[in-house]
Design a protein around this nucleic acid. Sequence first.
DNA 1: GGGAACTATTCACTCAGTGAATACTTGGCC
DNA 2: GGCCAAGTATTCACTGAGTGAATAGTTCCC
Lengths: 180, 180
Amino acid sequence: MSTAFVLLGLLARGPRHGYELKREHDTRLPRTRPLGFGQVYATLARLTRDGLIREAAHEQGAGPERTAFMLTDQGQAALSTWMSSVDEPAPYVQSTLLAKVIVALFGSDNTKAARNYLMAQRAAHLARMRELTTMKSGSDTPIADVVAADYAIRHLDADVRWMQTTLDRVDALHLEVAHD
Amino acid sequence: MSTAFVLLGLLARGPRHGYELKREHDTRLPRTRPLGFGQVYATLARLTRDGLIREAAHEQGAGPERTAFMLTDQGQAALSTWMSSVDEPAPYVQSTLLAKVIVALFGSDNTKAARNYLMAQRAAHLARMRELTTMKSGSDTPIADVVAADYAIRHLDADVRWMQTTLDRVDALHLEVAHD
DNA sequence: GGGAACTATTCACTCAGTGAATACTTGGCC
DNA sequence: GGCCAAGTATTCACTGAGTGAATAGTTCCC
């Protein structure tokens, strides 16, 4: 995942220790996948092993002992490569929605279950989209939150549109899929 | 993930062994995340442990020894619950795109890297969309492939639209994010 | 001085995913 | 007849991602 690179990015602003990184992650990347403390330290260990970061300081000052990390030259290079590199769009689909529809079709001799699911899921998506739209337009919502909400809304909308066209194709799909 | 439930779904049509499940997965769910043999057997082991499937037969007939599995009542129940249950739309975003843009913004004193990335990635997405559209309209393309391609196209389109609006917000986002 | 909240890290564990290894069978080819 | 490639079927060892609890010291306030 990109967690490792996000940490590298945070470390580009100067040495940090694990706890700080976790908090900065939460404020800089709101509404993204929650990051556990355990995960931060595990990732830092891997990055150290791979030579992308190294210990900058062991402090035993105020509070518990803590270890700050900093980028190595290699880490700096890896970070800028990552930032400027275009990602190949995924060659495959990874979607629970799609899986459910297909499973619902070959598990049954009619298309009722699939249709019901598609309509119910569509309603849930629309409800969430309304929620996000309200939140987004709050006057004091940080821009980072707006950008993330926008991402979510666009993809929920993509799902909804896909569900609509799939609803129309469900009979044809059933014939193809149910056939041995 | 939904891999476990997809296997349950395949087993709903009758007892199968691992190798068969892997092949059926590939034909029934084309263009989805590749499923390794190792993963199939590991998942079957977990499902057995959890009482959702059980061994149906040990055959030592033609070819290597093989073990067929079948659904238990509990597994049957778990499958139909899963099929008909609506998924809560994800409460957070998980996107390399979003992460890259934000990291590119707080790692620099200008917005150039972020802009360049957004434009290049947009081009890559559009290219892939054209590819998928061509493939989709092939006269002999199975419907399952069309449905999967449609899913991919809709989400690539969602990304592209997000990248466009984000391009307009990049300055505001930079101010917010670069500020300590 | 007692307790709650915050700072900071570690540990044990499970799941997901990858690639190679093993082993037996079938079919084609010279 | 003998050999090799491809197909069938499963297992193993390993890495990475992610979760939740445990540990331990500090600060602050009543």
